[in-house]
Design a protein around this nucleic acid. Structure first.
Lengths: 305, 305
DNA sequence: GCCTGTGTTGCCCGAATCGCAACGGGGCAG
DNA sequence: CTGCCCCGTTGCGATTCGGGCAACACAGGC
């Protein structure tokens, strides 16, 4: 939208903390940018940036303004979506922040299903850990977040939640794959393990159980990439960990839930920023997503407005 | 505000239901107006007005948009008012890093006095040692620093400085409390001492004097907490050290300055980061603070910009 | 028919905006 | 201390965009 050009400039300078870098991102020259900022500051009657040697730093006034800009853009997006909605063609954009565990099939399946019906709706899917996901919501970088075990935050409004039991993931030939049904933790620990690292909620959950148990940790491999761990499991007789929603439908893989006596379930949560009115397309997608998660995993949608 | 020119046009056309009348009110020609409206409709991908013989009538989409425009304008007005407020010193935030010695009454008194007049101004007070305080300034974690004996640094711009003579601190019944006026260092050393540890500037200053004198150190207690030392002095006949601004008004405590022949005064400094333009509220607070420190302890404000 | 109101379009001008190059200043390694 | 780099800023010329003027097309009332 044309009329928010200047506001976009401000937001970008605030993001990068420097006019030159922001100018590059905006495909204009620093001179044009500095002039726009100066004009705006003149209009407001007060500077909104502190000029420091390293660049531009938001002022107290600037902080207020940038928040306004974010709100204003989100609101406009909502209005545009509403307008598109009533003109028949459903258009819109959904920005989703999700944990790694869901990029395998949960999110892609849902996006595909939604786009099959409304091809005009576009998506941005950012992979973030549980902390970053909440931050993304708060900063309007994401409309929805799908995460495991999020830190309790008053800013989040839960749209759906359920429990997921951690599973041991091995390849078909692995000794643990000889049986089905729950597996005890000690049986897993008897084998070399390939674990998510501490940037992932799964690991935190696992470490807690281990700490209670007092067992030493026998991780031979750590990675921040679940996909890497999965590929490793296919190549070696190692045991990895995964939540059910992160396990692909691959005949070469076997998974068995960890016995409930050893490890409690993790929470899976779909959430938005509290108090925000989502654009129509986004709200509709969120609603369907909650429904299909319920169908897959049980659990409950939260029905407060 | 410039950036909502187009939105104002839309609102005005909606109000009057006719481009020509709206154009008259806006002091532009109908042609300019109709073009702007067309551009906007093109951007939105849908008309927002119905063209009827009598003029322009708002569409369903237009209704939504006009509501958004109204909200948008109100919100901007709110933000502008907030900004005006904080440039009027009535709002704002002050982040102060200070030494432990000042949390007893110097800083609380000043903050209370300032907030009595400007309750919208909020404060963050971090207790840091003299090295960390300077670092906090440099990293924009603090706007102001109030410290004893700061390391000389070109980054700091002194807003106020004065001298403080170290005092021996004892409880009312202590032998040293029988007299008033300056006390010699050897008389202090004759008693068991409870001293700040080396994380505090007071201790460095004291150790220097001791090294010059070649005396052995008779510290029986060391602590990084001045409050702890004070509470100890109340319970035992030990001698502690404190600067005047760190001594609470407690009838159970007595203090006597160390004789100037034994120990030079320490410097107390209020400073900001050199070259930084502080927010109005912060600058005003700093100014008052310097004034009230001057009134209490003498010394001089530095008047370079 | 005429007249008056509406929105719209072509042409032109002036101002806002932008790009380019250069300037002044602070941080930083040599 | 010096040279270098990156920062924001400024002067100037080119471009784009917003706006004014006049004319056009259409609808309704007399």
């Amino acid at each position: 939208m044309k009329h928010l050009r200047i506001l976009t400039y401000v937001a970008e300078v605030a993001r990068h903390g420097a006019i030159r870098r922001a100018a590059e991102r905006l495909n204009i020259t620093p001179s044009a940018l500095t002039r726009q900022i100066q004009d705006l500051e003149y209009e407001l009657g007060t500077p909104i940036f502190e000029r420091v040697a390293q660049g531009m730093r938001l002022n107290a006034a600037g902080e207020l303004l940038v928040r306004h800009i974010r709100d204003q853009r989100a609101d406009l997006e909502r209005v545009r979506s509403q307008i598109a909605d009533l003109s028949g063609v459903r258009r819109g954009h959904v920005a989703l922040a999700c944990s790694q565990a869901f990029v395998n099939h949960v999110v892609p399946d849902e996006v595909e299903a939604y786009r099959a019906q409304f091809p005009q709706v576009t998506f941005t899917v950012q992979v973030r850990d549980h902390v970053q996901a909440v931050a993304a919501l708060a900063q309007f970088e994401a409309d929805l977040a799908l995460v495991l075990q999020p830190p309790p935050s008053a800013e989040m409004q839960v749209l759906f939640s359920c429990r997921q039991t951690l599973c041991a993931l091995v390849r078909a030939g692995h000794p643990l794959a000889r049986e089905t049904g729950p597996v005890r933790l000690r049986d897993c620990l008897a084998h070399p393990m390939a674990l998510p690292d501490r940037s992932l909620a799964i690991r935190h959950h696992f470490d807690e159980a281990l700490a209670r148990r007092g067992s030493p940790l026998g991780a031979v491999i750590e990675s921040s990439s679940l996909e890497f761990l999965r590929n490793l499991v296919l190549r070696e007789d190692v045991v990895s960990l995964q939540v059910p929603s992160g396990i692909p439908d691959d005949p070469r893989l076997r998974s068995r839930p960890i016995d409930a006596r050893d490890l409690g379930p993790m929470s899976l949560i779909l959430a938005q920023l509290r108090g925000r009115t989502l654009p129509v397309a986004t709200a509709k997608f969120a609603d369907r997503f909650a429904g299909s998660l319920h169908q897959r995993y049980g659990g409950a949608g939260a029905s407060d407005t």
